[in-house]
């Protein structure tokens, strides 16, 4: 062992040691220095940009020149949002987001339940990857895959033909609203792609919530004479609900803001995202685009507020 010197403190010098001593004496200084770069980046660049966007929505296009009038702050652009045509876009988008969210919740639940409750070891890893791969693989490739599937000469029509069900598909496409010339230019097509693309965002939180439900709770319920369905309705489902709501926040918000999916697969009628894109681009109406982009923020704010009032976050 090393020989002990009699001095209690060790003498050590150098710039780094001096800096280290300073951080030890002033731990808050270290935290501040660590936080400064990310806070500057996110706070100044990102939040600054968001505020700039918000500010834009309070300007309006001058009707004579067609240019943005930067001298007057006005609510005129927000009034424009309530034109029948624009209101139509908002309602259409919200309805689509709602149906996509409900469908995702229904399809996601069995997968999440299976992964949380029954899958073990290798199977558990398989389930995890089966959810993570589509989640992380390219958004555009996923849309492209559905363009291939839904094409007139594609695999879905081929399948219906093989099963001699082409008539059924045509009858469905003849229906109002959900139908259309073909699947790839109908609301049904848009809906399918939305559900597909956002599904993992529903599965993961639902699975996490289900994994937090103690197994002995469901055992206790069946010990008390509940049928599996009663156990599910009164024990499992209420406990999984916070996870489903967390997932719905993603599916709802992502559908509200998307502009690429309805542009590639769907009818030519606009969604909020497309309206934003069109107004800021070719139309050059940045104030209206900004006002349109405030809509999803307000709707999500209301959504989160309601979820919180229902006590959905307490269990999270």
């Amino acid at each position: 062992m090393s020989t002990t010197d009699d001095a209690f403190t060790e003498q050590r010098h150098g710039a780094l040691t001096a800096l280290s001593d300073l951080f030890w004496r002033r731990p808050k200084l270290l935290v501040l220095l660590l936080l400064a770069p990310p806070l500057l980046w996110l706070g100044v660049i990102y939040v600054g940009a968001l505020l700039a966007l918000l500010l834009q929505s309070f300007y309006a296009i001058d009707e004579f020149t067609g240019l943005v009038d930067y001298d007057v702050l006005t609510l005129k652009t927000y009034r424009e949002l309530f034109n029948p045509a624009n209101l139509d876009i908002i309602i259409r988008t919200v309805l689509m987001a709602t149906t996509v969210t409900l469908a995702s919740a229904i399809i996601a639940f069995p997968i999440a339940y299976m992964a949380a409750r029954y899958a073990r070891g290798k199977w558990k890893a398989m389930f995890y990857l089966a959810v993570m791969l589509p989640l992380w693989s390219s958004y555009l490739v996923k849309i492209y895959a559905w363009k291939l599937i839904l094409a007139k000469e594609g695999i879905l029509n081929w399948l219906f033909a093989q099963l001699h069900l082409t008539g059924l598909l045509e009858a469905y496409l003849g229906l109002p609203v959900v139908g259309g010339g073909s699947l790839s230019i109908s609301y049904t097509g848009t809906f399918l792609v939305f559900v597909y693309v956002w599904m993992p965002f529903m599965i993961l939180p639902t699975q996490a919530a289900l994994e937090r439900v103690p197994v002995n709770l469901t055992d206790a319920s069946s010990d008390l004479g509940a049928t599996p369905w009663q156990t599910f309705r009164h024990v499992t489902f209420p406990l999984a609900l916070p996870g489903i709501i967390a997932g719905s926040i993603f599916t709802f918000s992502l559908t509200l803001g998307d502009y690429i999916i309805p542009q590639i697969i769907g009818s030519s009628r606009l969604f909020i995202g497309q309206a934003v894109y069109a107004h800021q681009g070719t139309a050059g109406n940045i104030p209206l685009a900004a006002a349109f982009s405030v809509v999803p923020i307000v709707i999500m704010g209301l959504y989160l507020w309601m979820a919180q009032r229902k006590g959905a976050f307490d269990a999270l």
């Binding site: 808050k28 935290v31 936080l35 990310p38 806070l39 996110l42 706070g43 660049i45 990102y46 939040v47 600054g48 940009a49 968001l50 700039a52 966007l53 834009q56 918000s253 992502l254 509200l256 803001g257 998307d258 502009y259 995202g273 934003v276 894109y277 800021q280 940045i286 685009a289 900004a290 982009s293 999803p296 923020i297």
Partner: peptide, 30 residues
């Protein structure tokens, strides 16, 4: 542990939580 930790987490998550179109348009107008 310091005051405002939640604010920092929110700030980090916000760019991915808000629809991409908002982040994009905000940056473009900035």
């Amino acid at each position: 542990r310091f005051f405002g930790r939640e604010v920092i987490s929110l700030l980090v998550i916000l760019p991915i939580a808000l629809p991409g179109i908002i982040t994009g348009l905000a940056l473009r107008s900035a």
